[in-house]
Amino acid sequence: MAFGPHLLLATLEGLVMAAVLALMALGLSLVFGVMRVVNVAHGEFFMLGAVLAWYFSTLATGHPAIGFLLALVLSPLVVGAIAFAAERLVLRRIHYNPEATIVATIGLLYVLQQAALTFYGPDANPVVPPFNYRVLLPWFGYSGYKLAVIGASILLITLTWLVLTRTRIGLVMRATQYDRETAQAFGIPVDRVYAGVFALGAMLAAVAAVLIVPIQQAHYLMGTDPLLLSFIVVIIGGLGSLRGTVVAALLIGVSDGVISVFFSPTLAKMLATLLVAMVLVFRPQGLFGTAAR
C-alpha cells in the first residue's frame, strides 16, 4: 500500500480509538469535575463492561445483533449498579477525601480485577460484531462496524452534552460542581447527586467497552491501558471540561493510531506519557482548560 492510503487507514483506526477513549474519559472527567475525586478504578469499570458484554452476548441465541444489543443495554446497567454500591459503601464513608479516595479506588481496582479473574477467567474472549459490512474504499475495504462505533460515540457524547446543558438533572450536576455548599443550601441532594454521577461515569466507561469488544477481546487485565489513556485525555483537555476532553481524545486517539502504525507502540506510549506528564507539570490546567478557581 502507498503512503497515502496507509495514513488514511491509520487515521481511521485512530478515530475508532478516539471515539471509545472520548466516552471513557468523559466519565472520568465528569466524576472529577462534580465530585473532585480521582477514580483510579475507572479502567476496571471499562473492563467489567467488556467482560459482562461477552457474558450477555453468550446468553442470546440467533442473530449476533440480539446478543450485542442485550449487552449494550444490560452491561452498563450492571456496571452502574456496582459503581453505585461502591460509592455508597466506601466513598461516602470516607467523605470523598481526595487521598483516601485514591487509596480506596486502588483497592476497588484490585478487587474488581480479582473478581473478573475468578468468575470470568484468564482467557480473552471475543464478541461477534452485530453486523458484518465492509465499506469499500478505493484502496481497501474497511469494517462498517468500526465506522458505526465512531457514529455511536458521537451520538452518546452529544446526548451527554444535551443532558448536562439542557436538562434539570444537568443543571443540578453543574450546580453541585460549581459550589457544593451553596447547592446544598438550595435544597439539592448533593449526596445523591454524587452517587448518581459516580454511577453515570462508570456507565460511560462500560458503554465504551461494549462498543470495543467486537474489535478487541475482553480480558480481565484490559483496564489498565485505557485508564492511563483517559487520565492523559482528561489532563490534556483540562479537568472537568467536556469540550476539552473530546478534543484531547481526538488528538491522543488519532496520534496514537498514527504513531503506532509507523513506530514501535511501546516507544509511542512512552513518549506520549512523558509528554503528558510534562504538560501536567508546566501547564496544570491542561491545554484547553482555564486556571482553577
Binding site: 466506601v90 480506596a104 483497592g107 476497588l108 479473574l117 477467567g121
Partner: peptide, 19 residues
C-alpha cells in the same frame, strides 16, 4: 477453582484500611 492470587487480598486490605 477460584484462581485467587494476592491482588484481591491487597485490594480488600486497602479498602478496609481506609474505611
Amino acid at each position: 477453582d477460584a484462581r485467587l492470587n494476592q491482588i484481591g487480598i491487597v485490594g480488600v486490605a486497602l479498602i478496609l484500611l481506609v474505611l
